[in-house]
């Protein structure tokens, strides 16, 4: 009897072991690489080498910083992911899509799956905050009521709900950056790229912006933030890619 019982238990154990294995297998599939760079180089016309054989990958749900001096290639790297620039050699895979095989007429659909914020904000200054944030949804052709609901939710999230009728020019740099963030996440993209989001902000505001990015990361968005604010990056305790003159010279994980 006892032996039989033991057998039963070991069968159960085996069963759970298999489930666990399967589970980790599926987790592995779920956490596929969101962004993969293999031997990626970018040379601008005129010969300036912005990136030189860069290798790294970001898994789904990662939050990673990208740092380096100005001119190290941070912005170029982000722009390659959204196909604002094309890499001259190597291979970039974003969300399972090899970018060098992406036909030109599919680029808009790639960009809809990538939220991006810019150092100089890139807002439409003749439109209200509401219209700026609504832009990706208008492009996607959503119903007016749905747009209204989601824009207000996004503005609420970045704390600018009371500014929806204002024009961007009347906002501070931090507020403009947050409008840009709201626009970047309004379409619920799986990837969020941020170029110097805390550029000219005081530390308290910068911290607040970072908290926003962390919140988006917590709901599964893969976040890549280019920044040269080393102190801030250190305080966040996240994986950091370090660029120097176009070369990836460091890929550091925080000590746990």
């Amino acid at each position: 009897m006892e032996i039989k019982n033991n057998d039963k238990i070991s069968n159960f154990q085996l069963f759970f072991a298999i489930i666990e294995k399967l589970n980790s297998f599926f987790i592995h599939i779920n956490l596929h690489n969101m962004i993969t760079f293999s031997e990626v180089s970018k040379r601008y016309p005129g010969g300036y080498q912005a990136l030189n054989q860069v290798n790294f990958h970001l898994k789904q749900g990662d939050m990673v910083f990208l740092t380096g001096h100005s001119g190290a290639g941070k912005t170029t790297l982000l722009r390659l992911i959204a196909l604002i620039e094309h890499n001259t050699s190597g291979q970039i895979v974003v969300n399972g899509q090899n970018l060098s095989r992406l036909p030109t007429n599919r680029i808009p659909y790639l960009r809809r799956r990538i939220g991006m914020t810019f150092q100089e904000h890139r807002l439409l200054f003749d439109r209200t905050v509401f219209d700026n944030v609504a832009l990706p949804l208008i492009i996607a052709g959503l119903r007016h009521q749905e747009i209204r609901r989601r824009v207000r939710a996004a503005l609420d999230k970045v704390g600018l709900l009371n500014k929806e009728k204002s024009y961007p020019i009347t906002l501070s740099a931090g507020q403009q950056q947050r409008v840009g963030i709201a626009r970047a996440v309004i379409n619920k993209p799986p990837i969020l790229l941020a170029d110097e989001p805390t550029g000219n902000l005081d530390p308290a505001l910068a911290k607040e912006i970072m908290r926003l990015f962390m919140q988006f990361n917590q709901v599964g968005v893969t976040v890549l933030i280019a920044s040269h604010a080393l102190g801030l990056i250190k305080s966040m305790g996240r994986r950091t890619l370090i660029l120097q003159q176009g070369n990836l010279i460091g890929d550091t994980y925080p000590r746990r």
Binding site: N105, P108, Y109, R122, L124, L135, A140
Partner: peptide
């Protein structure tokens, strides 16, 4: 800006 946020031609 339209192109950056994914507008088609």
């Amino acid at each position: 800006i339209y192109k950056l946020v994914g507008a088609t031609d």
